[in-house]
Design a protein around this nucleic acid. Structure first.
Lengths: 231, 231, 231, 231
DNA sequence: AATGAATGAGTCTTCATTCAT
DNA sequence: TATGAATGAAGACTCATTCAT
């Protein structure tokens, strides 16, 4: 039937939903199948095993993630610094909207770290190394980064970012900041005796610091560019 | 006998060693016991269950982590910015020397995020919530951060850090950068066709960017303070 | 194939055999599976857990038990007192032929006692309360009793049982006697210095006493109705 | 110190309390020790193992049980039937006051049944056969019964019980009834759709039936002797 | 493509019991 | 007598994966 989603996608969507609430480990393949409205066996027809399914999900996460970068690049009338600022907002939003995708990306970075260190490569689950989706990821994982670097380059050209900065190093640093920001929203949100700031209060300050870092001069007169539309 | 370590510590050390090579999931309690030279049962005498053992390990990780912060604060003759710079180096080093401790800390941040979000608190493994060590962690996890904030304050006072910065926000942002830096050392190290920089090449640039962010003015004449002794 | 028993029944039969010789506690699920000629996992496919399996067995015990009552009621040409007498013989026989079924029934009565006492309901193993078979048992456990009460009513109508007796109280009392009789066959059979009677010698006297109780008059001329065919 | 109960008794009391609420299986030796205020090891000094402890408890149960019989026999001015009636009330009360003692007695009867059947003797837990208390029980378990038989004999002599009854068979039958009565209070108490009588309503009818059985003639004019003081 | 019964390796955890002190 | 750390056998249960149909 025309209106019927293909099974492969059905399974993936089911996995996303379940991984979101129960996590990868605690989600059973049987439940993935049940939620997708198919049999357990069929799941294994489309995905070799649980890890393969997760790698497929990770691949989709990267595709979606890259799309966020593309959208920023497509936006007209913005300088490089504004693009980067937009991007930060988009990624923070992305991590809230698609927590599983975001976690999958982080997980892939961990695997990649081991993969790039010959001594640790053997510690990676063989099922992951087997997955065709993992190998696709090895090919494409840098694409979002490439787009990000492009934004920094644009910023340097249009003067919104300090000319002496190296685009690669700069963008990697920006992404680092973002990744860490997400991790830190746990302790920051703690309403206990000693917590001073909340996650919401932190974001503008965080973005401003990043902008200062990129601009290199303190421009108190010109307020920091902060998205508020997203939250 | 004087040379005899107490069993509790023996177990913890064994767990650290095994978690390092095999990971938490793949490590069997039986192996932890075996490596510690004791019986399986005794492991459960000292730690309620595997999660409790991991929480104890996490507690130790935080203690050790805090010690790194303390050491930096103790060092005489350094201004705030230098302290922060030292700290970054120390943490990067710490994550390499004690990867399990570092991972345990990151894992705790994830749990904490859920813990602080009432809707997600129930998604946390009950065994974790049961652990006395988890509750100790809730009490002390902010201590390293507090010391870090202190460093920023010192930097502001001694003029090495821009006076208009808010210490809390600033330090959280710094820590974010560091956490992200570690995560990103995976893709960065990728020697594939498109990778431009290596992790080693990134660190100095990363630190310089951070310093620029904190100093707020570009001081081309005065080179960035970069530890090289650590690597 | 026609001759192939379904697995569910195979497991139950295996459990009956093993519980008979080793008891519930000492029987391992793995052995149940092995004896049934299947894998351990399949056992858990059909029965949630060991308690669930035992409840399923108990359900079957009640069904079988009820069948004994039905058979007595179906027998033509017997008055109520003769029916009751038959029933006693059948139950005594049943307890010898299917000791596990009999024990399961007694065990269920113990659980039921707790279940009916709100303060003790929480002392029941949660796995039992979870079992769907337990809830079926709650629905049907009174059915054999109902048939027994019917027999007493028949006896009252046909004059073989004293008219002033209340059927419910009377039948419950009869069943009590039977249950106790089984329990007591232990000490009675003791061939030690002080034991006076054996279980075999007791049964006829036991039945006669019961009949006297029901008839209410001593009819020395008419001998007591005792099954001898069963033993 | 004079006021200090001896440890042996302390342990036994602790066991009684714990077995009452959690049952034998679910009670851990450690908890028995803790509640007794002593160490786990000492428990094993006084009792060889858990089964031995339980057999000691059973022995105490029989002693106490026998005391109930003695009290009835000591009471002056009662005929045999009245004594039996008193006894029933006392036992029913005993089972409520000391549920663990009562269960221990029933459990012993089950073991005894196996013990008396050579083919099943090997199915008995060897630890039970090892227990010195078990062997004491083999010596004394018939004592309460002996006293009960005595009561029936008295009843026959004083004319309150039918002369043609055999004391042994008769008393065993009475005890059977009582044991069964206790078991049946579970289903009887069920307030569901089909339950006709409650446990409280049943007891008087039960006692009357027993009395009718013993007396052998219906004496409508002389009301049944029913204890009410106990409930 | 699709099903779901069947498999069995994998592990945590409990607890009665012992023994050095 | 008394302690409590230490042992280790025992067993329930899960779940990814397979395969006959």
């Amino acid at each position: 039937m025309a209106g019927e989603k293909n099974k492969e996608k059905l399974i993936l969507d089911s996995a996303v939903a379940l991984f979101t609430t129960k996590g990868f480990q605690s989600t059973r393949m049987e439940d993935v199948a049940k939620r997708a409205g198919i049999s357990k066996g069929l799941t294994y027809f489309y995905y070799k095993n649980k890890e393969d399914l997760f790698m497929a999900l990770t691949k989709k996460a990267f595709d979606q993630f890259k799309e966020e970068f593309r959208e920023v690049l497509r936006s007209k009338g913005k300088n490089g610094l504004e693009m980067i600022t937009d991007l930060v907002g988009k990624i923070v939003f992305f991590s809230k909207e698609h927590p599983v995708y975001y976690q999958a990306i982080l997980h892939f970075l961990d695997v990649l770290k081991k993969y790039n260190e010959p001594a640790q490569r053997m510690e990676i689950d063989p099922l992951i190394l087997d997955s065709i989706h993992f190998h696709k990821l090895l090919e494409i994982h840098h694409e979002p980064v490439k787009l990000g670097i492009q934004m920094v380059s644009i910023g340097i050209k249009d003067g919104s970012i300090r000319p002496e900065l190296q685009p690669e190093i700069t963008f990697y640093t920006i992404w680092s900041m973002i990744i860490g920001f997400e991790k830190m929203s746990g302790p920051v949100g703690y309403e206990g005796k000693e917590a001073k700031i909340s996650a919401e209060a932190w974001l503008p300050g965080f973005i401003k610091l990043m902008q200062d870092m990129l601009r290199g001069t303190i421009q108190a007169s010109r307020p920091a560019i902060v998205q508020t539309s997203l939250f």
